[in-house]
Measured scan of single mutants.
Amino acid sequence: LKKVVALYDYMPMNANDLQLRKGDEYFILEESNLPWWRARDKNGQEGYIPSNYVTEAE
């Protein structure tokens, strides 16, 4: 899975979204639905995130 790091905080707009915290790492599960990607956080929560809020992890 592709790993990304959040560049900004993101508060979910609806139940399908995943909250982002700046500096945290996330795994990308699906990239087909631009600009929204399906992601999983370190706690196993899954949801959609804005792809322009993250960058690929080193």
Rank of each mutant, 00 (worst) to 15 (best):
M11I: 14
N33E: 15
A57Q: 11
P50D: 06
A57C: 13
I28V: 09
N14Q: 10
T55S: 11
D17A: 11
D41K: 02
R21M: 09
N16S: 12
K3Q: 06
Y26K: 00
S32P: 08
A6V: 02
L7G: 02
Y8N: 07
Y48W: 15
S51E: 04
A39S: 03
V5R: 08
E46A: 05
E31S: 12
D41V: 01
D24N: 07
G23W: 05
I49L: 06
L34K: 13
D9L: 02
R21Q: 09
Y48C: 13
R38E: 05
E31P: 07
P50V: 03
Y53F: 11
L18H: 01
I49C: 02
Y10Q: 02
I49K: 00
E58S: 14
Y48T: 07
E30D: 15
T55E: 10
I28N: 00
L29K: 03
E46G: 02
M13K: 14
A57P: 12
N43T: 09
W36K: 14
N16F: 12
I49N: 01
I28W: 02
R21V: 15
D9R: 02
R21Y: 11
E25W: 14
Y26R: 00
K42C: 09
D24C: 12
A15T: 13
W37D: 02
G44K: 04
S32C: 13
T55G: 09
A6K: 00
L20K: 00
Y10D: 01
D41C: 04
P12G: 06
V54E: 01
E56V: 13
I28S: 01
P35L: 15
D24P: 01
R21L: 10
I49F: 06
Y48L: 11
L18G: 01
N52G: 12
E58Y: 13
A57H: 10
L1I: 11
V5D: 01
D17V: 07
A6W: 01
L29G: 02
A6P: 01
M11F: 14
N16C: 15
P50R: 07
V4Q: 02
V54W: 02
S51H: 11
R38K: 15
R21K: 13
L29A: 03
R40K: 09
I49D: 00
G23I: 00
L7N: 05
V54S: 01
N43P: 02
T55Q: 12
V54I: 07
G23D: 06
W36C: 14
L34I: 07
L7V: 07
L20M: 08
S32W: 09
M13C: 14
K42S: 11
F27S: 06
Q45V: 13
Y10R: 07
M11W: 14
L34M: 11
Q45N: 15
G44T: 02
E25F: 15
L7Q: 05
A6H: 01
P35F: 15
G44F: 05
Y8H: 11
K3C: 09
N14L: 08
R38W: 15
R40D: 02
Q45E: 11
L7D: 03
S32E: 09
D9N: 09
S51T: 07
V4N: 01
Y10T: 03
E58G: 14
Y53M: 11
L18E: 00
V5A: 03
N43W: 13
K3L: 10
A39T: 02
L20F: 02
K3R: 13
V54L: 05
A39G: 05
E46T: 07
W36H: 12
E31D: 13
Y53V: 04
N16Q: 12
M11N: 11
L34A: 14
I49P: 00
K42M: 14
